[in-house]
Design a protein around this nucleic acid. Structure first.
Length: 722
DNA sequence: ATAGGGTTAG
């Protein structure tokens, strides 16, 4: 089979997929902690009490039991009131993860001083037990112990998250009252706190108020902007930092790399890589993770992989960076492969690994693989993770089953906006606009506030179902939630208006847009013009597109399709010439079909399959039956329709048809056929597949470049509207 | 104290 490199990359190696199914479904439990014996010296008499003796003993401990023995000794020797030693015991208890034990020691102490309070508060803060932190902090105030610069960082950490931010603001006030408003240590934590709560404004105010900024202050504000979707500002501040002659440390570089990762600026990212080498930090394993992530996200997966391979034992985070880097750049097969490797090598996996692997499966599109992934997840400890469940919902929807997506949705506890949105988007993908809208109202009943993505999903759902009025209403609903429409939202409205034939209104709407119309908006107008053969307006839209996005093949193809639909064959030819001049060629069409968990690929007119003979017999049979059933091929315009597949061959040689024929001879009667196409459904194949679904009494599910079609009994779920 | 890998849309 003659396939180009990018195609080979997209297709999955079936043997990889099938071997995945035989893997164990349980995640390995962690090894139980082993307790090494502790050599406790002979009991000492009370007069032999020595602070440094006990201190070194505590330092040597490795288990709670050791601490217990020392504590007992302190009691025997009457030194149980030594604040420094008790603080040390508490700190060690925390370090061993024995927070309850540390708390007992603390509770036994009469009138704890500031050191003890700090130790136990810090302990809870390290274990992320924020409720206890706040409770103890309040009790400390009741006990009239004044906090100091060691108390505030732990307490502020506990104020992360919007609901706790009110507490954070109160603590901010107390920091002033206790005179720590110029303590860099405390102020740095305040910057980080506000930034983590998405309050970048207040974070900036605190940062600007600092007179002696340390590397940590700069790093906090840089990562604050990087985390809050403003990487450009993060980078601006980074250059200010360098002007102030402060040398960035490796953590600062990690934050900057994150910003470049989001900006998708490989050139600048590389220059930071240069910085890393100049500063001799290239062996810093944690910096390597950021570099890997940066290169992977900017599409340089091979470079990223070389970093990965140079580590003898990659950390979990590095595995995750590599897997998600692959998954996000269309290297689904590699991503799933690495995940498989982790399982077979019994390497520890976390919810981030799961999420990234699920994302990759969503791209593969195999329902069987999706099911396997779901089973694996449900039998693991991540079955209630919101991120994982959201990814599963998305995966099932993209693998063709809204029903299974709904099952995951229903079993997800504590649904946030993203969960609801993923389900709404899923309904939209399958053209179930009504269900999407219903779910939106249910979501509001649950008092979950929609976001901009929710509306992209809703508007797309309306498009895929032709719900003009509902879409229009929803678009205006956005402002009630203070959501500014973005390009996608405008594009959806243009699509809605255009597809329902309101071309003039669509054009007026574009002219009145408060933001500069972008590629998606003009693209929507152009495809509407194609449907209604509005050549003049379509040419205008195409002109805008050629200026904004000159090297995107899709726009030329669309214009050519418009000309073809209006039978302006000369113009079709001109577009072809134009494309040639720019060195653009259209994508080759292919279809995948899943048979018994294996994906099989077919190109246009594909004759390479081992069962080619049987397939062509089936194709002939099908064509005969189609004719008898009264199917008339839409030859003329389709034959010139560049959007679809190469037309040198006859229409029934489109990859979709071949894949269906193969599916019919490879599965028992009544089995649902599941196909994935890289291009959009062509008019001719679409109506042929409707006929076929009735003739052979099969359900046929087709995922095209933009949505799903469910063919059944001669009808398609899209209502011929796509 | 400061950070890196994750979900919906594009």
């Amino acid at each position: 089979m003659a396939v180009n490199a990018s195609l080979t990359r997209k297709l999955c190696n079936p043997s990889n997929l099938t071997s995945l199914y035989s893997l164990p479904t349980k995640i390995r439990p962690l090894d139980p902690a082993t307790v090494s014996p502790f050599e406790f010296p002979a009991p000492v008499s009370s007069q032999a009490f020595d602070y440094s003796f006990y201190a070194s003993l505590i330092n040597k401990s490795t288990h709670k039991n050791h601490l217990n023995q020392i504590h007992a000794q302190l009691l025997v020797s009457g030194s149980q009131d030594d604040r420094l030693l008790i603080t040390k015991l508490i700190n060690s208890g925390v370090a061993f993860g024995e927070i309850r034990y540390a708390r007992n020691i603390f509770d036994e102490f009469r009138e704890p001083d500031l050191f003890l309070w700090n130790a136990i508060i810090r302990g809870y803060s390290r274990r992320n037990m924020f409720g206890d932190v706040i409770e103890l902090y309040l009790r400390m105030q009741v006990a009239s112990v004044s906090p100091d610069c060691f108390t505030f960082p732990s307490v502020l950490k506990a104020c992360c998250g919007l609901p706790a931010l009110r507490m954070g603001c109160r603590v901010h006030g107390q920091i002033f009252r206790h005179g720590f408003e110029s303590d860099v240590f405390v102020q740095n934590v305040l910057v980080a706190l506000y930034a983590k709560c998405g309050q970048i404004g207040p974070a900036r105010v605190v940062f600007d108020g600092l007179c002696d900024r340390t590397v940590v202050s700069w790093t906090s504000i840089i990562s604050g902007y990087a985390q809050n979707g403003d990487p450009m500002e993060a980078l601006r501040i980074f250059s200010q930092m360098r002007q102030s002659n402060l040398k960035p440390d490796w953590i600062a570089l990690v934050s900057v790399l994150k910003a470049y990762t989001d900006v998708d600026d490989l050139i600048q990212g590389k220059s930071i890589h240069g910085c890393v080498i100049k500063m001799g930090l290239e062996d810093e394993p944690d910096l390597l993770i950021s570099l890997t992530a940066m290169y992977a996200k900017c599409g340089q997966v091979t470079v990223a992989r070389s970093f990965f391979d140079q580590m003898e034992t990659p950390s979990l985070t590095l595995w995750n960076a590599m897997i998600s880097g692959y998954a996000k750049n269309g290297y689904a097969e590699e991503a799933v492969g690495l995940f498989r490797e982790m399982i077979s090598k019994k390497i520890r996996i976390d919810s981030i690994t799961m999420t990234s692997a699920i994302l990759a499966c969503a791209q593969v599109g195999s329902l069987e693989l999706a099911r396997w992934m779901d089973d694996y997840t449900t039998s693991s400890e991540y079955r209630n993770d919101v991120f994982v469940n959201t990814a599963l919902i998305d995966m099932y929807a993209k693998c063709g089953s809204v029903d299974l997506a709904r099952t995951v949705f229903d079993r997800t506890v504590d649904k946030d906006v993203v969960v609801w949105s993923a389900m709404i988007v899923g309904y939209g993908l399958h053209g179930q606009g009504r269900e999407a809208i219903d779910l939106y109202y249910t979501m509001k009943q649950h008092e979950v506030c929609p976001n901009d993505v929710t509306f992209v999903g809703l508007l797309t759902a309306c498009n895929h179902s032709g719900l003009l009025e509902e879409g229009w209403k929803l678009f205006h609903h956005m402002r009630d939630y203070g959501i500014e429409p973005r390009h996608q939202h405008y594009a959806c409205v243009v699509d809605l208006l255009g597809r329902s034939g309101h071309l003039e209104q669509a054009y007026d709407f574009i002219m009145k847009m408060p933001i500069e119309p972008g590629v998606s908006v003009w693209g929507a107008l152009l495809s509407a013009c194609k449907i209604y053969r509005h050549v003049a307006l379509g040419e205008y839209a195409a002109q805008q597109l050629f200026t904004l996005d000159p090297y995107n093949t899709g726009h030329y193809v669309q214009l050519s399709n418009l000309y073809a639909s209006a039978r302006l064959w000369d113009c079709v030819g001109k577009v072809r010439v134009l494309m040639k001049e720019k060195g653009l060629s259209k994508d080759l069409g292919y279809s995948l079909i899943e048979i018994n968990g294996k994906l099989q690929a077919f190109l246009v007119g594909d004759k390479s399959h081992p069962r080619h003979k049987e397939i062509s017999e089936e194709l002939e049979r099908l064509e005969k039956r189609l004719k008898e059933a009264g199917f008339v091929p839409h030859t003329e315009s389709v034959l010139h329709d560049l959007n679809y597949e190469e037309t040198e061959e006859t229409l029934c040689n489109h990859s979709e048809r071949i894949a269906i024929a193969f599916g019919l001879i490879s599965t028992p009667p009544g089995t649902t056929l599941r196909l994935t196409k890289n291009l959009r459904a062509c008019v001719n194949c679409h109506s042929a597949t409707k006929f076929i679904s009735k003739l052979v009494n099969r359900e046929i599910v087709v995922r095209d470049a933009t949505r799903f079609h469910h063919f059944k009994d001669g009808f398609c779920s899209c209502g011929d509207y796509w």
